Computed example of a mutant assay.
Amino acid sequence: MSRVAYVNGVYRPHREATVHVEDRGFQFADGVYEVWSVFDGRMADFDGHMTRLHRSLNELRIDIPMTRDALTRVLKETIRRNRVRNGIVYLQVTRGTARRDHPFPAPGTPPSVVVTSKSIPFSRSQAQAAKGVAVVTYPDIRWGRCDIKTVGLLPNVLAKQAARDKGAYEAWMVDEMGLITEGSSTNAWIVDQDGKLRTRDTQANILRGITRAAIMDLVKAEGIELDERPFSVDEAKQAKEAFFTAAGAFVMPAISIDGVRIGDGKPGPITTKLRERYLEAARRDAV
């Protein structure tokens, strides 16, 4: 079956779905996006992603394109038309189409809305998590508002490709002080030598990950000690466990960083427990 995309009010065959050449998302990366994991045809962490979407739009002064209920119907219909049981649904909202000029277009210019959905075998993620994956480090060269989930992802693309070039799954970005900020498309975590779970706080220039927030709720429920504090590359390499979180990766164990083995080179007990608990909760609460 061919895929289907929603573009500005119309469902189209994926291969025919287009936006205008002067869409500001295309010409200026002037837009935002969200990605929901789909379990059994339902979206995980729905409210968190929707809340962050509205925050990102407000921060960039892009008009909210439709009501929450209407957008929810579009997301669900796109999932249904693509017959996705397990996978993702992707939403992108840009400032719209207007003659190319840096300032905002005239008030009332309608935002552009694109929604796509695709199946991803859950077994693939499970197999990767069972073995763990490799991470490399990369300089963080992003702009100063990484808390907004914009489509301006060129530094992330370069970091992700650097990881691929070295046979790794993910790149953890490092600031000018030698501290890890986050992954190219994930939030970074370690269990340090003292046994404390650590991840960078959201007052820093990092994305407020929705999966990250869900994990923090689970950490509290499990009684695991958490320290929201930056860690250096050396601390990460000396950690007992390391992992990263994201809508597509869930909780993914990192068993090496820059070729240095983490712990015993296998997914650790805290990482494994949090992945299991997260998947249980995500499936249970999906909408």
Rank of each mutant, 00 (worst) to 15 (best):
D40N: 11
G223A: 11
V151M: 07
V251H: 00
L197F: 04
M173K: 06
G265K: 07
T150L: 01
A5Y: 12
E16F: 12
I141C: 12
G268W: 02
Y6D: 01
T181Y: 07
A221N: 12
T137N: 02
I120N: 06
Y138E: 06
A204P: 07
V157F: 15
Y169C: 03
I255C: 04
N82F: 11
R61D: 07
I64E: 10
V233A: 02
D192L: 10
N205A: 08
H20F: 12
R81Q: 14
L57D: 03
A5D: 11
F231N: 01
P13I: 09
R3Q: 13
F46S: 01
R83M: 05
E182H: 01
E241H: 04
K118V: 10
R275D: 01
D285N: 15
N205L: 06
K240W: 00
T18Q: 07
G263H: 08
A127M: 10
S37A: 14
M177E: 14
V21Q: 08
A106H: 06
Y90M: 09
V133Q: 02
G178C: 09
V219L: 03
G223T: 10
R61S: 13
E77D: 13
M173H: 00
T271A: 07
S256R: 04
K237Q: 14
G96W: 01
A134I: 03
P13Q: 08
D217P: 07
Q128I: 13
I120R: 10
T51W: 00
I224L: 15
A44G: 10
D23V: 05
D45I: 08
Q92G: 03
S112M: 08
I206N: 08
I62Q: 02
G263Y: 06
R275M: 05
D192W: 08
G144H: 15
M252V: 00
G183S: 05
L207T: 03
K131M: 14
V74A: 09
V251S: 00
P267D: 03
A282R: 02
G195H: 09
R80N: 09
R284I: 05
W172S: 10
K266C: 02
A242H: 04
M66A: 09
A282D: 00
R24N: 07
F104W: 10
G195V: 06
G96Y: 02
D140I: 03
V113C: 05
R15G: 03
T18K: 12
F244E: 14
Y278I: 04
N187G: 04
S2L: 12
P267S: 03
D140F: 09
A236F: 11
H54E: 15
V114W: 00
R73D: 15
P121A: 15
E77N: 08
M252E: 02
Q193A: 13
E182F: 05
